[in-house]
């Protein structure tokens, strides 16, 4: 049990929490950017121009085909070295997760709007609403209702994926954990079990409520639409 004691000794637990905050901060910033850029992408994907749609589609496929970790390597090692710009691991991560998040968010937003049946738009314009009014009063509210659970799910995914930044040298919760384990190698040889166990629980404590929230919203909407 001395391993568990190590977790709560001194300011160790606080250090783990601030390590977790590093990845969550990266996730939150990226989610924010992705929401803005993703809305633009989503709108672009619904444009009539075939060329625009093809470019968007290509962007989406290219981003999705590679593991996020490969993108992190490309930005962190590749761009930094070839262009000579010195990017921190954290900045690289925000760039990568924004690029990825924008693609996923854009696709979600496109899907959200497409799921509102055309006759909803037609019947609102036939009531005399302008195109703009139809969007504000009829289309947006319905699309957003469908979108919210999906956006929460994507956010949860992004929070989980930011855990990868430890592999490009960002000092986040896994790194802090390792530091604590190394510092207590002799007093608590089994610290690794407890420290990594704690980190597992920490991520769960962050992501589980988000998942529950999105499930709850989805259920409520199903009731509404039934």
């Amino acid at each position: 049990m001395e391993g568990l004691k190590i977790v709560f000794e001194g300011n160790n637990f606080l250090r783990l929490l601030s390590g977790l905050w590093v990845t969550i901060r990266i996730a939150l910033i990226s989610i924010g950017f992705s929401l803005i850029l993703g809305s633009l992408l989503g709108a672009a994907m619904r444009m009539k121009s075939k060329a625009v749609r093809a470019v968007c589609r290509a962007y989406l496929e290219i981003v999705r085909i590679m593991p996020q970790l490969v993108w992190l390597f490309i930005v962190f090692f590749g761009i930094v070295r070839t262009l000579g710009i010195n990017l921190s691991g954290e900045t690289s991560a925000i760039i990568v997760f924004t690029i990825w998040g924008t693609a996923e968010m854009g696709d979600l937003i496109r899907g959200g709007f497409e799921s509102v049946p055309v006759h909803q738009y037609e019947s609102s314009t036939s009531l005399g609403l302008t195109k703009f009014q139809a969007y504000i009063y009829v289309i947006f509210p319905q699309a957003i209702r469908l979108l919210i659970p999906n956006i929460i799910n994507l956010s949860t995914r992004m929070i989980k994926t930011t855990a990868l930044v430890s592999l490009i040298g960002v000092t986040e919760v896994l790194k802090v954990g390792k530091q604590i384990i190394d510092a207590n190698r002799f007093e608590a040889p089994n610290a690794a079990l407890w420290v990594y166990g704690t980190i597992f629980v920490m991520y769960f404590a962050v992501c589980f409520p988000l998942s529950m929230l999105s499930t709850a919203i989805e259920k409520k909407q199903k009731k509404l639409s039934a």
């Binding site: 989980k160 079990l193 420290v195 980190i199 597992f200 991520y203």
Partner: peptide, 23 residues
């Protein structure tokens, strides 16, 4: 399902690879 879906793979792997040997 909830445990698996709400934690990152890398954390699961760290626990398996570095944590479990201590048990």
């Amino acid at each position: 399902t909830e445990l698996s879906r709400n934690t990152p793979l890398i954390v699961q792997l760290f626990f398996l690879y570095f944590g479990l040997p201590k048990a």
